[in-house]
Nucleic acid binder design. Structure first.
Length: 328
DNA sequence: TAGGCCATCTGGTCCT
DNA sequence: AGGACCAGATGGCCTA
């Protein structure tokens, strides 16, 4: 079997699946026309001569009407046409073409998704956002920019970051936080507490108008990383709470249902991956709760990093510097 | 080994 | 009839 770069079956793999199926006729609620229900039996190889359904019967074989299990209800609906060799071939060809079209369609969809990724504020070629996270982030990005345009918030504000992180998984939130902190054009100013070994994040000055620091706060009752601070993504757990500050009432507003997954650590900074050990604040992956494996997968990549490890501090580490960096 | 993500195949439905 | 779109199912890959 041919395999593409993902190790998946590709061209030429048509008509091969591991499904064995049977047709059942079930009356629709109005009892009018029957609904064909396929019951899958995974793993069987007996499908190989059957994947074309009843149309793949031996030439000249009549439909199984009245055959087989005598207790089985008679098939309703129009009698199927006899399957000739020519029909078999046409059916196969049609299926092969349909598969190719479907592949092509999905590739187009993926290309569009890749284009979307490329304009996301934390686009990274080494740490690819999953499809669902790309869509969530895109939505948040639009909302955040809209609010910024309306003058409600600055792109440097904490609110902007919060909007951006709404509904995202913790790793993605951290990725966004990291990228906005150390994004292109920005530079990191080492603060005194950093030099003294204190816990503090980098301060971003200048840049592209997105110098945003993730929020750091204590949160009783919520799972928290060992270092005792949380970034803005943890606010998401409060958003869905009844009467909470982030409760959403309108499907049209920019609130996003909270992401229910457990918190996970930062993995990327400035579009690159966090080094596995070099940062004094780096927490090895096995210390994290298992979630959002998609981004973990990217941890196998070993960067390249654009900044020295020593200057990196996970977003969690940045204590609030209200009034210093934020726009609000 | 479990769980997340993904590509692919497939049949159904709708539309032209 | 055929194409586009969709959702379900499946298996591969990867990481913890």
């Amino acid at each position: 079997m041919m395999a593409n770069s993902y190790g998946r079956p590709s061209e030429g793999a048509e008509l091969v699946s591991s499904l064995e199926w049977m047709d059942d006729d079930v009356s629709s609620p109005d009892g009018d026309k029957p609904i064909k229900v396929q019951r899958y039996r995974p793993g069987g190889m007996g499908h190989l001569g059957r994947e074309l359904g009843s149309e793949d019967m031996e030439e000249g074989e009549e439909e199984e009407e009245g055959q087989g299990d005598g207790n089985a209800p008679k098939r309703r609906g129009p009698k199927r046409k006899r399957m000739t060799k020519a029909r078999q071939e046409r059916f196969k060809a049609r299926r092969v073409k349909a598969n190719a079209r479907e592949r092509s369609r999905m590739h187009g969809l993926n290309d569009a998704l890749e284009n979307l990724r490329s304009i996301m504020p934390c686009h990274s070629k080494t740490q690819k956002l999953s499809k669902i996270e790309t869509l969530r982030l895109a939505r948040n990005y639009i909302c955040a920019l809209s609010e910024a345009l309306e003058g409600d918030q600055s792109t440097e504000s904490r609110a902007f970051m919060e909007t951006l992180c709404e509904g995202l998984s913790q790793p993605t939130s951290n990725l966004v936080a990291g990228c906005l902190q150390l994004g292109p054009g920005g530079f990191v100013e080492e603060r005194p507490e950093d030099r003294n070994g204190g816990r503090g994040g980098p301060t971003v000055l200048g840049g592209v108008g997105m110098a945003v620091r993730p929020i750091s706060y204590s949160s009783p009752g919520l799972p928290s990383p060992p270092y005792g601070t949380l970034d803005s993504a943890h606010l998401l757990h409060l958003r869905g709470m009844k009467g909470g500050a982030y409760e959403s009432h309108s499907p049209n507003d920019c609130n996003t249902p909270p992401y229910d997954g457990p918190p996970t650590p930062p993995l990327s900074i400035g579009g690159n991956l966090v080094p596995k050990q070099s940062s004094p604040h780096y927490l090895p992956p096995h210390h994290y709760p298992p979630s959002s494996m998609g981004l973990y997968q990217s941890a196998r990549y070993e960067l390249p990093l654009e900044m020295p490890y020593d200057s990196y501090h996970p977003p969690h580490m940045a204590p609030p510097q209200m009034g210093t960096v934020y726009g609000d």
